[in-house]
Amino acid sequence: MPDPTVPPIRIKGRGSSSRPEGRFETTRREAEDDGWYRDGEPASPPATVVTEERARHVITRNQSPDVPFTASLNAYRGCEHGCAYCYARPSHAYLNLSPGLDFETRLFAKTNAADVLRVELARKNYRCTPINLGANTDPYQPIERRYRITRAVLEVLLAHRHPCTIITKNALVERDIDLLAPMAAQRLVHVFISVTSLDNRLSSRLEPRASAPHRRLGAIATLNAAGVPCSVLVAPIIPALTDHDIEGILERAAQAGAPTAGYTLLRLPYELKQLFEEWLATHQPDRAAHVLGILRQIRGGELNEPRFGFRMRGEGTFAELIRQRFYLACRRYGIGARAVGDLDTTAFSPPRPPSAQGELF
């Protein structure tokens, strides 16, 4: 829990306002006033620092029954979007960095991701299955404008007719329509854009560096108009904070041509519990107790439920009410309530494996 004696401080453009230690740390750090700032003078805002790294592997496998894909690729570690609720925040603890501010300011770019992907696709034992881009961090977060790693990955996938799905909160995905449209024509791609709220003011605090809600809805319309299937994810739904927008999001997404929709209920694994409580104390202090109370109702008395089959949807009366509202709205607005359309894995043409002797043909 946040210290009730210390007033929370909002850092503009950041979803977190602290750097709590990760669960693997053996030391604890505390901020101390060194006297350099005059009373009322704010400290410098934390800058984004990107470290370029060379990946050895880029395709990750999972066996979770809660997600509709078994393979994923993350071009970046950490995410500048800074979403306060992001379930990927605790992954930064593996780097001895804080899941708080470090997750959104200390980023890592896998600059050789496309080259490594090409090598992995060329392996003799490789079996083609759709690869998800954006399972852990957003492939179109702001630094993608500079690094263009996601675009390079898409170029490899298109060249070898390999299917993929994309999950993003950023309208930057529109930049790659020249790649996505020919992929869509071959049933090789399905894009999902997550829309959490229709309230720009709330969104600017909840997911400060993601595209505004209206831009995401505009991207859904643009992609579908270009022949690229683009669905909507109402995810995550935050009880007593964003759930009132479920029907509105689905109506707007239907108008934008979204063929399908999905949803998840907020989950708070590991350090995310503390971080989200801090966010509520900073931005929604009057609703904090109510939001956390409902979360405990749908999570068996806890703030997180890790069991497969329950962690995405929750259980109990409130969770069932959300489920019914979501499916009723999907029927009302003509959106399919399913995860992903059929993608073609039969056209995959693997790259030739690298050879020290070169090739004549």
Score class of each variant (00 low, 15 high):
C86D: 02
V173Y: 02
A71H: 11
R161V: 12
Y140S: 01
Q63V: 14
T150Y: 01
Y126F: 15
E104F: 07
E52M: 11
R161N: 13
H57D: 12
E80Y: 02
Y76W: 04
P130L: 00
R145W: 13
G100R: 06
V156I: 15
R77F: 06
Q63A: 15
L117A: 06
T168E: 04
R106I: 11
P65Y: 08
D176F: 01
P139E: 04
T51L: 10
N170L: 05
V173E: 00
C83D: 10
R148K: 15
S72K: 00
G78M: 04
F103V: 03
K169Q: 09
V116H: 05
H162P: 09
S64H: 09
I166W: 07
T48A: 13
E80S: 09
A55R: 03
Y140W: 07
R161K: 14
A88V: 12
T111N: 09
D176N: 08
C83G: 12
L97R: 06
V49C: 11
P46F: 01
P45N: 07
E144G: 07
R123L: 11
R89L: 01
I143T: 10
T60H: 05
R77Q: 03
A113P: 06
T129Y: 11
S72I: 00
F108H: 10
E52S: 14
F69D: 02
D102P: 03
L121S: 00
G134P: 00
A135S: 15
Y94I: 11
R54T: 15
A75F: 04
D102Y: 05
V49R: 12
N125K: 10
H162S: 06
H81Q: 07
V156Q: 06
C128A: 15
L121W: 07
H162G: 03
A84I: 09
A171H: 13
C164S: 15
T150V: 10
A114V: 05
T70V: 14
R161T: 13
I149D: 07
E155L: 06
S91I: 11
E155V: 09
Q141N: 00
T105Q: 02
V173N: 04
K124T: 13
I167L: 15
Y126H: 11
P130T: 03
F103R: 04
S91D: 10
E80V: 09
L117G: 05
A71R: 14
K124N: 13
A114W: 00
T70A: 12
A93C: 12
Y76C: 01
R145S: 13
V156A: 03
I143W: 04
F108P: 06
Y147I: 12
T48G: 09
C128K: 06
T129W: 10
A152G: 09
Q63T: 14
P142Y: 04
L73M: 07
V119L: 15
C164E: 10
S98G: 11
A152T: 09
I143N: 00
A109Y: 04
V50F: 06
A88Y: 01
A114D: 01
G82W: 03
R77P: 05
P163E: 10
H162F: 04
A47R: 14
F69Y: 15
R145Y: 14
K110R: 15
Q63M: 13
D102H: 01
E53H: 08
A152S: 15
V50M: 07
T168H: 00
A114F: 01
D115W: 02
L101K: 05
T137P: 00
V58W: 08
T150D: 01
H162T: 08
N112H: 05
D102K: 04
I59K: 00
S72E: 03
R54A: 10
A88T: 11
A114Y: 01
G78L: 02
T70Y: 02
T105K: 04
